[in-house]
Structures are given as C-alpha cells and as structure tokens.
Amino acid sequence: MAFPFSAIVGQNEMMNALIIAAIEPKLSGVLIFGDRGTGKSTAVRALAALLPDMAAVTGCIYACDPGDSSSLCETCRANQLKGHLLTHRVAVPVVDLPLGATEDRVIGALNLERALADGTKVFEPGLLARAHRGFLYIDEVNLLEDHIVDVLLDVAASGENVVEREGMSLRHPARFVLIGSGNPEEGELRPQLLDRFGLCVEVRTPTDIPTRVEVVRRRDAYDRDPAAFCETWRPADMALRDKIVLAKAKLSAITVPDAILEQAAKICLALGTDGLRGELTLLRAARALAAYEQADAVKLEHLRAMTAPALRHRLRRDPLDDSLASTRVERAVAEVFAA
C-alpha cells in the first residue's frame, strides 16, 4: 500500500508538476532535482496509486489502449480487424528503471525459456513495454549509463520501441511518462535527455521545524499502521483523483488565447531557450494547469505558474556557471509579465 499522495507535506511544486504530467502525458515527463530524503520516490509511487485504473486489451502483453486504435500493437491491430477487442481494467503501471539495468532488460529480449524448451521465438517484453501508458521512474537519472540513455532518448521521442536483435524484428508501442530524479551535484545530465523531460522541479528539504515535524509524524503514523493511515487520507486522495479525471476530460476543450501565445513566445525569447520545444511545453503545461483548475481558457496566471518548471532546464547554459537557472527564469518572468 503506497503512501497517500495527499499526505505528502510541503513539496507543492513537485506535487503540482507530477499532477500536471499525469493530466497531460504529452509533456512526457518530470525531472526532479534535489537532495536525498526529500520524498521524491514517495511522491512518484503515491501518484501512480492515486490514478484511476485504465482500460486495456485483455491478453495483450503491452496493455494496449482499446480506445486509441492508432497506438495498438500489431497483434491487437490484427485482432481489431477481425472483430471486437475484449477489455479489462488495469492499474497504471509505475516501472522502476534501476541503475545498471542491461539493455536486454530495458528493451526486451528473446524469451530464453521458450526458445530452448520448445524452440519457439517469443519476445519477452522489457521495462519499456511494461511502462507503456504508465510511468517510467529512474532514480539517480544523472548516473544512468550512456547506452541506456541512448535507448531511452529514441523510445521516448518516438513512443515506439523497435527491437532488432537476437533474430527478432518487431516494434511495439511504448508511451510513458518519464520521471527522473537525481542530485545535480553528483553529475550532469546530457542535454538531449534533459530536453525529454517536459517539466523540471527542484525540491529541497523543508527548513522550518513545524513542517519537518509534520513530515516525520505522518511518515511514522503510516509506518505503524499503513491501512488505517491510508483510510484516513482516502477521501482527500479520492477528491484529488476526481479532479485529475475531470481535468483530463476537459483538456481538449481548453482554449489558448492569442495574447497568451504571444506572452509564451516572449518569455522563451527573453530566456533564449533552444528550439520551439520550450514554447510548446510551456503552453501544454499551462493548458493542463488550466484544466486542473477548471478554467475555460488559459490565463496569464497559469502561464506564469508553469514558466519555471517548463523552462528552467532549457536555458542555454555554461556548464561551469552554477548560478541557479531558477533565478534567471524568475527575473525574466518579472520583466516580461510586468511589461
């Protein structure tokens, strides 16, 4: 039983970013930078437990989405042409990608057992397949080996895992929300990987004593009796779940006024972010926030709230310059939005 999401204390920016990423999977992920012991892993696992079950094709190893025929795997597509797909409900997966995972485990490999026992060529899905439609969580993402990063970059960009190894040639959908956490003091992240994360938040240990006491108190209560603790927080979690479900349904109906588009372009220009992905991400995040707050259109305050998480990791930066990107973003926000 995971720690209830609503019971997490402080860390509002991280929690909001996770909620926004859950509402809008196209943001393709959240990067959480911060020290150890600030509740990063707890929040990710709690979020998955919070989300409602999703419909999936029965018997499909990739848990294909029956509502989206464009993303079906080959088997499901063939079955769909033949007739009706059976569905059932499954929990949103959260898959851990551990440091040092082999390519076989990540991409998937030939099922040895079947190959040797009865000589059939069967694909054994890897972590990418299991994370389809869910979350792929990488703790200490900045320590991830380069060859695994290569695999991730390609799959995260295309939403499809192409396997060409061990005499197998197949492709399957792999769309997931990438969640990475790490401590920037321990290593740099490749810019290409940084770019894959839609949002980036920085978490810090709360410094005021009452908040810290509350963190420890709640965690302790949870450890002593998880069932009772989760029961206490269930109403809050359910309310939040409903809000997320509503926001997801509303997302496509949210309009973006031209003035907002202009402001987004202005702030990206002022910060000198590379490419158009910054603007796109910023708008998507602002729209998701508007949906979450049940607004009909994106307002300036939504844009403003999402500027730092959407852009702070996209600034062109000197590797040796350790002045905080957040400060630069704040300054730019104040200048652009004041004008």
């Binding site: 020290d35 012991g37 600030t38 240990t205 004593i209 810290r212 963190v215 420890v216 302790d220 450890d223």
Partner: peptide
C-alpha cells in the same frame, strides 16, 4: 519529534530519513 527535527536543522542534516531513523 520537534526536538529531533530541530536538531537535524542545527546539525545541517537535510535528509528527512535521518529524522525518521532517529525517531525509530
């Protein structure tokens, strides 16, 4: 609890795990 958290702060211990460990 308050004592433990105040001590963590004074000793410059950021991780919340330390406070939990101390309590346990």
């Amino acid at each position: 609890l308050g004592q433990i958290c105040a001590l963590c702060e004074m000793l410059g211990i950021g991780s919340m795990r330390a406070a939990l460990f101390a309590l346990r």
